[in-house]
Design a protein around this nucleic acid. Structure first.
Lengths: 195, 195
DNA sequence: GACAACTTTGACAAGGTGTAAGAGTTGATT
DNA sequence: AATCAACTCTTACACCTTGTCAAAGTTGTC
């Protein structure tokens, strides 16, 4: 990470192998141990420790990788164009599509951790949402009254909640996304009553 | 639990001592071990196992107790009277007041568990919210369009998100609750446009 | 081909969960 | 008040996971 030139290609290969295995395994079974991950990666447990100093460190790396993937997918949604509400929905759909591959990892993101650190980790995603929200606020499409940070948190929370409704089979995907979309718009749209 | 008459008062005393200590300790440090809990309860580790067959069993009991307390507080909010929106806000404030004593336990409620089981555990709370929501839908105060279960999930998700905003110091309690209140009403109120 | 980086093997300490048996206490029952 | 049953305590053990260490083996790189 410090000097890519001084790392052997071998090492990087092992590192990604471990990371891939961790994503896969923890996606199925969040309580998988280091030994299981190492075996799944075709590597010894000590080799895992050679790349990630602790289990927590590995989990962090896994979450970071997922965050990165989701952020990339969001960037491909061209959220800077078109009406802000449409852009927001596109953004969320893109994020959802990228995140749903390993549902357990989404839950894993909400693991016990220092709040600031946890916040910093989700920031790439929150920032992209905040950007569209801000654009909508400036354009009069979203209500500028509530704090931006609250609106971001609300959007994320509603998205997660909707995702769980689908995952647990209480709603069909179409019904749930429809409810989410209209709900979000209603939540963010300013009252026409007052100026 | 099966036959209260055949249980000695002693046993019940120990049980509640352990439960109290667990609530206290896990409220500060969610990863506290059985030994620490036992010591805090003034009891041996084995005595803990005499009442709770596993650590998971104990966690379940702790969450259940919190749920019970919150449910009681909600019942004291007389949510069956007055306009449904006001009643909902009263209900949530009551729940919040009862739950905020040990913030870590709220997070602990969202621990990895079988979805159905987890759902069943939160049902006392969800049911009370659903009741007010249903009343509001019947009375035309809330939009009957989205699925009731989604509205319940949305209300809970927004409440939690708002709670975190406060807890992490990103918003003042007054600002956050104001945002939550107006946000909820906006989310649940039907469009005046269509009949 | 030689050096350095990387991996492997094997072993270990520490800490947590869960189980077991036997002796000691305390509550309930008569 | 005595007795039995229930409850608790002590001690001990087996097991698993995390994290660390050292030495030998292997593979990339210059």
């Amino acid at each position: 990470m410090i000097s890519p030139q001084r790392r052997r290609a071998d090492a990087e290969r092992s590192r990604t192998a471990v990371l891939d295995a961790a994503v896969q395994l923890l996606g199925e079974r969040p309580d998988a141990g280091m030994a299981a991950i190492a075996t799944a990666a075709g590597v010894t447990r000590q080799t895992v420790y050679a790349h990630f100093s602790s289990r927590d460190d590995l989990l962090t790396a896994v979450v970071d990788r997922m965050t990165e993937k989701v952020a990339e997918a969001m960037d491909a949604a061209s959220a800077d164009e078109g009406p802000a509400p449409d852009a927001l929905l596109r953004l969320l759909d893109a994020a959802w599509g990228a995140a749903e591959t390993y549902p357990a990892l989404v839950r894993l993101g909400a693991r016990p951790a220092p709040p600031e650190e946890d916040r910093a980790r989700h920031r790439p995603i929150a920032d992209r949402i905040a950007r569209v929200l801000q654009r909508g606020r400036d354009g009069g499409e979203f209500d500028p009254e509530p704090a931006l940070s609250w609106q971001v948190a609300a959007v994320i929370a509603l998205s997660h909640a909707t995702g769980e409704e689908i995952r647990d089979g209480r709603m069909s995907a179409t019904d749930a996304t429809a409810a989410l979309h209209s709900g979000l718009l209603r939540l963010l749209t300013p009252d026409p009553g007052k100026p």
